[in-house]
């Protein structure tokens, strides 16, 4: 059955384009970076790269979940801000307090996600509008808790994110690896797959007996939870709380997810791609800095790179799937 084999081959390529092309680009950029800045070949660079990628990775991972489910969440960034200011104002260095506020922070993220999900599914507010509204509300709350950057997080939190383990492996990198491992497990959980099904074809999922509304709401809750963890890492990295900083990760987070091959139309993508996408954006910033590009142009090049990478990905995808599909 040669035709069938061709299809599978093309499919396999298509499946890995997002992650594959990201990895290639990432390695290329790292090489460029170290050529431009040989001095950067030091432990400290790996640490600083991982540290600056971490919150973006979390934002992108959170966004990926709702994108797969066919939605979008604009409140990811401000949830990170809210969590960071709560942690910076409320948490003290006792283990009990750290544990309690960590759980509470994740609870806050889940609650925001639940609110988003309910607004979208039961009040029938368009996802973009609903999460735009919650974004404003949460931003207001975050500023209410802490009007300007400040506060203090426990020392354990700082080292937990900024430090290294086993001598030279940055903790930030370990956290990112942890996220990937959790994703690997989630891929094999039924209800996580249903997010893909619902995002890809809601009617079909419903007809198959999936409770689609619950799945969508669940995707927002999961997104909120991941965003909250992102907020925890953010406050650890900043050693303090910031009511604004989190919001700056929203759009780069979406960009990272899309660079990594997640479809804004739902049903397609994954967290490893988003992690790679986040690293690409982070390393790109470093490369631009190393090439002494004026910071004013940084956004310009970031945008350019996003369009380029996504364009390449889409083209490869079109080519491979046209091989398989157009003539079927």
């Amino acid at each position: 059955m040669p035709q069938a084999d061709q299809w599978l081959g093309a499919q396999r390529i298509a499946k890995w384009t997002g992650l594959g092309s990201c990895t290639v680009i990432l390695v290329g950029m790292l090489v460029a970076y170290f050529i431009l800045q040989p001095a950067a070949l030091a432990d400290s660079t790996v640490v600083s790269l991982s540290n600056s990628a971490l919150p973006l990775v979390m934002a992108a991972a959170a966004e990926t979940v709702v994108l797969i489910g066919g939605g979008i969440d604009l409140s990811v960034g401000v949830v990170m801000s809210l969590v960071s200011v709560i942690v910076a104002t409320e948490m003290d260095s006792s283990v009990g307090s750290m544990l309690f506020w960590t759980v509470a922070a994740i609870g806050v993220g889940c609650a925001v996600g639940l609110l988003n999900g309910l607004l979208i599914e039961y009040a029938h507010v368009n996802a973009f509008i609903a999460t735009l509204a919650t974004m404003e509300v949460i931003q207001g709350l975050a500023l209410g808790v802490l009007g300007s950057p400040g506060g203090q997080v426990p020392a354990g939190f700082e080292t937990g994110t900024q430090g290294t383990s086993f001598h030279y492996i940055p903790n930030a990198l370990l956290i990112i690896l942890g996220v990937m491992v959790l994703y690997g497990i989630a891929r094999r959980v039924r209800s996580f797959r249903w997010i893909y099904a619902v995002g890809s074809d809601r009617q079909a999922a419903r007809t198959s007996g999936i409770r689609d509304r619950r799945v969508v709401i669940g995707s927002y809750v999961l997104c909120g939870a991941i965003a909250a963890v992102g907020g925890l890492t953010l406050s650890g990295l900043l050693s303090s709380g910031d009511p604004i900083e989190g919001g700056t990760f929203l759009l780069p987070g979406i960009a990272a997810a899309v660079i990594g091959g997640t479809s804004v139309f739902g049903g397609k993508g994954g967290i490893p791609g988003s992690v790679a996408g986040a690293f690409i954006l982070t390393v790109l910033a470093s490369v631009l800095f190393a090439a002494s590009v004026t910071p004013f142009y940084e956004a310009f090049f970031t945008g350019l790179a996003t369009v380029l990478i996504v364009g390449i990905g889409v083209t490869i995808d079109r080519y491979t799937s046209s091989r398989a599909a157009r003539w079927s």
């Binding site: 893909y196 079909a204 999922a205 198959s208 049903g267």
Partner: peptide
């Protein structure tokens, strides 16, 4: 034509 999810 309703119950298959095309991305799966």
């Amino acid at each position: 034509e309703l119950s298959l999810v095309s991305e799966l």
